[in-house]
Design a protein around this nucleic acid. Sequence first.
DNA 1: CCCGCAGCCTGCGGGC
DNA 2: TGCCCGCAGGCTGCGG
Length: 286
Amino acid sequence: MPELPEVETILNGLQSALAGRRIISTQARRGLRWPVPDDLSIRADGKKIRAASRIGKYILIALMRGPTILIHLGMSGRIRITAGRARYQPQKHEHVTLTLDNGTRIGLVDPRRFGCFLLLESGREREHPLLRALGTDPLEQDFDARYLSDKLGRKRAPIKTALLDQHVVAGLGNIYVCEILYRAHINPERLALSLHQEEIERLAAVTPDVLREAIGAGGSTLRDYVDAQGKPGAFQELHRVYGREGEPCPDCPGYPACAGIRRLVQSGRSSYYCPRLQPPLSLEDA
DNA sequence: CCCGCAGCCTGCGGGC
DNA sequence: TGCCCGCAGGCTGCGG
């Protein structure tokens, strides 16, 4: 569930909790999809935090004179920050806990265990298999129409599937791809290589807009997403199509030829779209 | 090579 | 009430 805007919101909370602090101790409990390294304590205990950052849906916490922690929240991962030195009760499914020098605990809670907590060699983070082939983050400078047409121009996959591929764009998930395609007026079943230049340009323009709006609203909470302080997001109120099958399309109110938002399943995931604003083929092709 | 899809895992909600 | 089934989804790895 956490996509780029949710991860960015969590990162903000993490940055304020971690700034200038030192890790006193670490505890790893159960196995995540990628096992937490056995030597976590040996490599992380006593290390000062250098910086926390994000690439796509990955969080990186660089330690001074030490490795970089790589966190992915999978589908159900949460970061839980607890201040104070009181006796600490880890939550159910809390796989890793860091204790900082001011007593604050940073817990990674992930019921479905699709996430990861790994250590990367400092300075060589991008060489790790999980990050090496990652596409450009849409909030970076070099994310533009040229980049997108380069990545999409030879892909026969539907544009919906192509945008979910983290090697194309890093950070998008099902919710935001639906919202982005809706705002760009592109049908999710269109093949990526069939998009025209204007459509690619719309896609490149609309993508960071939607993500920034979502970050401004604190992300989307559907079931269980909360930020590092335990606060839910509000962007779900602003979803125009995601989860709104059968509802009227907000951008063609009362339009007789618009039957409202439809849902279809593409590679096992729900896509939501407006058939009038996002026609299967553009008029020139028909 | 490139695409589609099963599988991983748990919690929740709908239906009976 | 309680059980069961299906669904949710990010990412990998396999099969076509």
